[in-house]
Design a protein around this nucleic acid. Structure first.
Lengths: 172, 172
DNA sequence: AAGATAAGTTTCTAGTTGCAACTTAAAACC
DNA sequence: GGTTTTAAGTTGCAACTAGAAACTTATCTT
């Protein structure tokens, strides 16, 4: 199999920079996490995540503008405003949990408490992993890049020769 | 089931802040991604990810100090230094890919090219998801927090009454 | 009507980013 | 063997960003 280096200029167009634009920063992350924990209001975010007032205001507008939170004045108390995760925001959970799990394992050392469990059976969730279409858990050793044009579907078979322009990732 | 709010002061001890300390910042992220793509040397990082010299130097030492990269002078060319992902760094891949996938779906819009595939069958990897111990894919609706002391194992059965101090996450 | 609360804005200081120029050591070239 | 190039940084400095604390405005409670 060819170990040709993929053109990194092209990979720069991947989803990461876009994602980082929006949430690649400490307080945005913490704010979203608080929202996942049911935090809804300005003063609540303020005390729960220990952020400065102006920074919080800034992040909340930013997250709202980028469609991760939805801002809605409360009709029953017109001083209050409700911030709630949109579908886009909720869909960030796997990434969030993957980071949290990584931090638990490597940064803090302490297994965190409380623990996230499957509501149905009260058992802890698995570690977030990368999976092939057949659900096999894949490590960085099992992955490579391939051009969209050269992708085969589950049913097609292009033969055993792998495309020329691929390369393993994180190869050691 | 009780919907008691979990104590957020305790959740502050979760893995996220630790993870963000190290990689919760644009350039650290981009640097790690480049490393996953086989980038090894200072000047290479510099041109590939478009970062300023001093910032790169700063990030590389930071990532090295926190054990994500390993710094090793090259014997065959003693001007050169090699930066390589450690096990800790490599283990960050699921989080990285989860973020990338999120960005692809929500931020850029364009499905990125090249695509990450399972080397064995050349089929694209699945989306990174949260799974229960039985491998069921879980959404934020299926999750709740529970205290470590109250966790039951796969074999124990504490009866059907869920512990009092739990709450659903991201409840809408 | 007075006081408290919610959600911000403003001000000002301290730290961070990023460009460009400089440094130092080793290799390559002639 | 001397000059040039390359690699991996460091330093200096202007512009920007973060953060603490005080201020504002609208609404609600008593």
């Amino acid at each position: 199999m060819g170990k040709l280096r993929e053109p990194l200029s092209e990979i720069a167009q991947c989803g990461l920079p876009g994602a980082l634009e929006v949430i690649g920063e400490r307080w945005s992350f913490m704010t979203i996490r608080a929202a996942f924990n049911g935090v809804r209001h300005f003063e609540e975010f303020l005390t729960e995540i220990g952020i400065a007032r102006n920074i919080l205001a800034n992040r909340l507008t930013r997250l709202t503008e980028s469609g991760i939170l939805q801002r809605k004045p409360c009709p029953e108390d017109r001083r209050k405003v409700e911030y709630r995760l949109t579908e886009k925001g909720l869909d960030f959970l796997p990434a969030m949990i993957a980071m949290r799990q990584w931090g638990e394992k490597w940064a803090t050392g302490t297994p965190s408490n409380p623990v996230l469990v499957d509501e149905r059976d009260s058992l802890p969730i698995k570690r977030v992993t990368i999976r092939g279409h057949d659900d096999r858990v894949l490590s960085h050793m099992d992955l490579c890049w391939i051009y969209a044009a050269e992708i085969r579907t589950k049913d097609s078979d292009l033969g055993d020769d792998l495309p020329g322009r691929v390369r393993k990732i994180g190869s050691n």
